[in-house]
């Protein structure tokens, strides 16, 4: 997996709460069995109204761009579809800064090398506002120090599980990690059975 440590970028604001995975990627794009450009389907029905680009939608406004998406509370709620994380990543975002995240989305993002940065609703709202006022606002994310700041006032620490942090910092593959645990897994299997 691609490593992440420090990221410095302008950001795209999405000043909304409860952005669900049906909006991030509508169900009709989940039919592929192989790779597909999920980035093209990101926020599809918000980016395109009746198949015409909606110039008002934040992602479509030229003045907003960058590797960071900034949004409000409960981002990624709803379905467990990992396609949502794939779409965010393939569109080009490396970090999502939000008031809060839905659990499954947070995990899916981490598993795909997209860093979820939770800063609480009030700060997230302020940050969205700053970006709306000044699209050139830069966001600085430092995973090692677990800090996010910007050239407006916002500076805050964020939480991330230590192991997940190491996975991102050093590109550790969870799958290999689990496969190496097979002896422990078999030992546990010997101890429990479905009916105990």
């Amino acid at each position: 997996m691609e490593k992440i440590n420090k990221i410095e970028s302008t950001a795209v604001p999405l000043p909304l709460d409860n952005v669900d995975t049906d909006q991030i990627i509508p169900a009709r794009f989940l039919k592929n069995v192989e790779d597909f450009d999920y980035g093209s389907a990101l926020f599809r029905d918000w980016r395109y109204a009746e198949d015409k680009i909606d110039p008002e939608f934040w992602l479509n406004q030229d003045k907003f761009s960058g590797k960071v998406l900034v949004t409000q509370s409960n981002f990624g709620c709803g379905s467990s579809r990992e396609h949502a994380a794939w779409a965010i990543k393939q569109y080009g975002f490396k970090v999502v800064v939000a008031g809060s995240f839905a659990d499954i989305f947070r995990n899916n993002a981490l598993n795909n090398g997209v860093l979820p940065v939770e800063i609480g609703l009030e700060k997230a709202k302020t940050l969205c506002k700053k970006i709306l006022e000044n699209p050139k606002t830069k966001i600085f994310v430092d995973l090692q120090d677990q800090k996010v700041s910007s050239n407006c006032e916002i500076e805050t620490k964020f939480e991330i599980d230590l192991f997940k942090k190491q996975c991102l910092l050093y590109g550790i593959n969870e799958m290999e990690f689990l496969n190496q645990l097979k002896p422990d897994i078999e030992a546990l299997e010997a101890k429990i059975n479905l009916y105990a």
Binding site: S80, A85, N107, N111, D161, E174, L178, N179, L181, I185
Partner: peptide, 22 residues
């Protein structure tokens, strides 16, 4: 509980998951 596709692969591979205790 529900999981993403990477985790489906993990369960297929190792019948286990790395997961934060809620």
């Amino acid at each position: 509980f529900g999981i993403g596709t990477t985790q489906v692969e993990q369960v297929l591979s190792a019948q286990s998951l790395l997961i934060t205790r809620p």
